[in-house]
Design a protein around this nucleic acid. Sequence first.
DNA 1: ACTGAAAATCTACGCTC
DNA 2: GAGCGTAGATTTTCAGT
Lengths: 158, 158
Amino acid sequence: MDELDSEILRLLQADARLSNRELARRLGVAPSTCLERVRALTRRGVIRGYHADINLGALNRGVQAMISVQVRPLSRAVIDAFEESVSKLPEVLSVFVLSGGDDFLLHVSAQDLDHLHAFLLDRLSKRKEIVGFRTSMIFQRVHNTVLSRLPDPAPAPR
Amino acid sequence: MDELDSEILRLLQADARLSNRELARRLGVAPSTCLERVRALTRRGVIRGYHADINLGALNRGVQAMISVQVRPLSRAVIDAFEESVSKLPEVLSVFVLSGGDDFLLHVSAQDLDHLHAFLLDRLSKRKEIVGFRTSMIFQRVHNTVLSRLPDPAPAPR
DNA sequence: ACTGAAAATCTACGCTC
DNA sequence: GAGCGTAGATTTTCAGT
């Protein structure tokens, strides 16, 4: 992971459809060099994929919410099963497994408030393992699509 | 937004680097047709961009947390300023503006626990408008990168 | 890591329905 | 207006250096 790799990641995070040629031009290297770097980053799992970012409104998902969930018993089996099944629901954008007061955070979207309400009642309230959940509406979201590499951690003192 | 458009969105969410030719082949239409559809979707703002998905570990961001924040006074000026400045911090992946008990939710990443701690102390604790915050570690995240269009809302009764 | 050339793809434009 | 096919321009890809 040298400077060139970091720059490639930066540019592809900003625009995944950059042609290899254009990428190479901006980095000041030959296209073949650039191509090999991108392939190596993909092979190593640093680049995990390329995804189009779609306007949620156009997908009939004008309403977003965060739902914090507590489940019991707090066993691996319950947690894994909950995460697995809930992440398949069409309304669910992301599932976070947390420490602390809540066990899960669900980022969901729905057509409107009625559908969100229906989702809460039909998909969550019925689950036996859920002992409580709290819903917060999302008014706005700012997403950082381009992430820089953070400085290396300082070595542990000895 | 017909069936063809929805399919295009689905395929480009799964793999934004699909060639137009391959996209057309999978949809059973001519490449020129496909290209025009994609352009129209982009022009209308349905497609907002294309982003590479990078392994956070490779960016020295092995640790993730959710931070719920309460600010006062709850005025537009305070909210806008907080959102604006916090979204620029390199550790911040996403900022959610919420209703309910908390005003913001910050999704952040850091090199390790030490750096996360430093972030909390140096970047949040010092802010006068913050009256409280609570940090939850993220053990795991499942992200739905391919979102289908939800059914149209039923028309309002009259 | 670069160069060059063959293969594949992109995309503008004129055509048909 | 929406989709199609073609051809010229561009890009990708992979030798060889």
